[in-house]
């Protein structure tokens, strides 16, 4: 029980100490030139937070919700402390914002340039990523069904698909820009190519996942190809398909952003990143990255949520 007591005493103390230091560091006299006492306090907080976190993560709680809460709190506190260190070191040591802006400066910039960020988000995420994602995943799925029907096609396509997924597919971006112009269709085309092969390979693998006994059962029901596909093989393949959908959600955003490095109209997340880096306004670049991070995690989270709803029967979700 000592670990729990240590954690329950130390965690509020560390939190209060961090807030105090945050207030301290933004005072005009302290920012940029704090004394050794200040850094001593930061190091002490650091050590205390390590003890507190290890206490928290070794907690054994009786009730299940409390345990869930603790296992959620540990990474959140850890992440918050990293941001705290970033802020304190950057502001305290007076790191020039050309090198590394403080999180508070990034947040201010984010809030101040909402309209620009919204336009970039619509251009890159809504137009390029979502369109390309839907088309690439859809095409991969259809070709996988086709390849599953025609064994010759499957034996030919599967090695190729595996091979292509190891290639730097992103390199086709300049070609797509040349073919489809500067606007979003060229980015969507890159996303289509990048998402197609993971979907193809995973779906084909998923379609073979149904067991022999289940298939025999379907046959003894006199179920035809389509009934077996819809009632047995596709549901069994769902975990594989969602795996591809999750991989693709990240790939799609990367593809769209990197493709914009090769030429865009004057809007878009990749365009903004490359132009603001050249102008050395790194707080805007970080704001854009924060947007990309939020969009990426939200996209991934949405797919994961749908997966939970669609594959509730799967052993990994049963409790």
């Amino acid at each position: 029980m000592t670990a729990a007591r240590r954690a329950s005493v130390l965690t509020p103390l560390v939190l209060a100490g961090c807030l105090y230091v945050l207030m301290l560091v933004h005072r005009p006299g302290v920012a940029g030139a704090p004394g050794p006492l200040f850094w001593g306090l930061v190091v002490a907080l650091w050590l205390a937070s390590i003890v507190a976190l290890s206490g928290l993560s070794n907690l054994r709680l009786k009730s299940r919700p409390a345990d869930r809460l603790a296992s959620l709190a540990v990474p959140i506190l850890f992440g918050a402390f990293l941001f705290f260190l970033w802020e304190v070191i950057v502001v305290g040591a007076g790191v020039p914002s050309v090198l590394m802006p403080a999180p508070s400066a990034i947040a201010r910039r984010f809030a101040a340039s909402m309209p620009v960020l919204r336009d970039d988000f619509i251009q890159t995420f809504v137009k390029s990523v979502l369109t390309g994602y839907a088309m690439g995943c859809g095409a991969g799925f259809v070709v996988a069904i086709l390849a599953d029907r025609v064994p010759f096609l499957r034996r030919g396509l599967l090695p190729l698909g595996n091979f292509v997924s190891a290639l730097p597919v992103i390199g086709i971006a300049p070609i797509m820009v040349m073919w489809f112009g500067f606007d979003w269709p060229s980015k969507a085309a890159v996303v289509v190519v990048m998402t197609f092969f993971p979907m193809l390979v995973n779906t084909v693998a998923g379609l073979t996942a149904a067991g022999r006994i289940e298939r025999d059962l379907m046959q003894s029901y006199a179920a035809g190809y389509w009934t077996t596909l819809l009632k047995l093989r596709l549901p069994v393949a769902l975990p594989f398909i969602f795996n591809a959908l999750k991989i693709n959600s990240t790939l799609a955003l990367i593809g769209a952003i990197v493709a914009e490095f090769f030429g865009t109209p004057t809007v878009g997340m990749g365009f903004r990143i490359s132009i603001e880096v050249a102008r050395m306004s790194l707080d805007m670049v970080w704001a854009e990255i924060a947007l990309a991070a939020i969009a990426g995690s939200a996209f991934y989270g949405a797919v994961a949520l749908i997966e939970r709803g669609a594959t509730f029967w799967h052993p990994s979700y049963r409790t």
Binding site: V98, L99, M100, S249, T250, L253, I254, I257, V258, M269, G270, I273, S274, V277, M280, L282, V285, W286, E288, I289, A292, A293, G296, S297, F299, Y300, G301
Partner: peptide, 19 residues
């Protein structure tokens, strides 16, 4: 990994370049 990490590539290049 859900974050498009490649997006920060320009920052790494520029920041390291400026030091």
């Amino acid at each position: 990994q859900t974050i498009p990490i490649l997006a920060i590539a320009p920052i790494i290049i520029v920041v390291l370049g400026s030091i």
